[in-house]
Design a binder for these strands. Sequence first.
DNA 1: ATATGTGCAAATGGTTTGCAGTGAG
DNA 2: CTCACTGCAAACCATTTGCACATAT
Lengths: 153, 153
Amino acid sequence: MADSQQRLDQMIKVLKNKGRRLTPQRLAILKILAQSQGHPSVETIYEMVKATFPTTSLATVYNTVNLLKNAHEVLELDFHNLGSRYDGNKPYPHPHAICTGCGEIVDPECGSLEGLTQEMASHTGFHITHHQVYFFGLCPRCQKAGQVPESSG
Amino acid sequence: MADSQQRLDQMIKVLKNKGRRLTPQRLAILKILAQSQGHPSVETIYEMVKATFPTTSLATVYNTVNLLKNAHEVLELDFHNLGSRYDGNKPYPHPHAICTGCGEIVDPECGSLEGLTQEMASHTGFHITHHQVYFFGLCPRCQKAGQVPESSG
DNA sequence: ATATGTGCAAATGGTTTGCAGTGAG
DNA sequence: CTCACTGCAAACCATTTGCACATAT
């Protein structure tokens, strides 16, 4: 994906601008986040980095992820049961759909969020800066799996 | 408020149906949640209960709140920085606006959430069951406070 | 009478922090 | 060469759990 290369370049640029160093471990984490399709957890990132750098510590992953989060180069999703997940592809707030069956997280197209935001603003007088919009339910696959409750043979 | 009395009665009924007991501490927690206007945290509830029952433990508050949460008689709001907050007035999912200045949480009227939900469902194929919709920003009071940065005398 | 609820304290689990050694710039 | 980064382990903090006693039903 050309996009993920652009994301990676952007992340590197931001870190440089902040005077941060680009260690091999850190670069590996950046790559994982820039290419991430599945909203990985810190633990997931940790396991992936360890494939290349076996001595990497969890603290280093947290450190780098937080660095990017504070620079708005990664979006943090907060879930009560699933733990925090990270999106390095679209580091700006956007709606998510989370399957309560398999845990899959998808980024649906969404045109009507803007209207909702404006409605919230006008009803509250708030100056809205960002949001967290999560929809929970069953993905198509889990719906099918649920319709045939393990009895077919 | 007549509403909060109804909420309290409903909570009590649900606990009874589950064969749970109504201890004085538990009743106090139920009342706090049924009347809650400000989305209290467990810690806040704990402090309030202790005013009447000084020996109450945090564990008891967690226990009762979770009981109600699982019975859908209380709505849990999950925030990364603010910690979990609870709404015993409207125990069903609804949008919230959170002030990043003072921490106030309000429940705005909202007509266009249904459309967004349907858009999400049609774009993902998910069967949506519930949601978490949080808008963050500055409440009117904090906007004014910010406009005059402590220099006026 | 009984088994749920209570209070206390210890356990848990995800995240952060302190520190001494390492290495990117 | 210097200072940020790393890895490890300990610290943190909200929440949960275990246990013996108390009590609502």
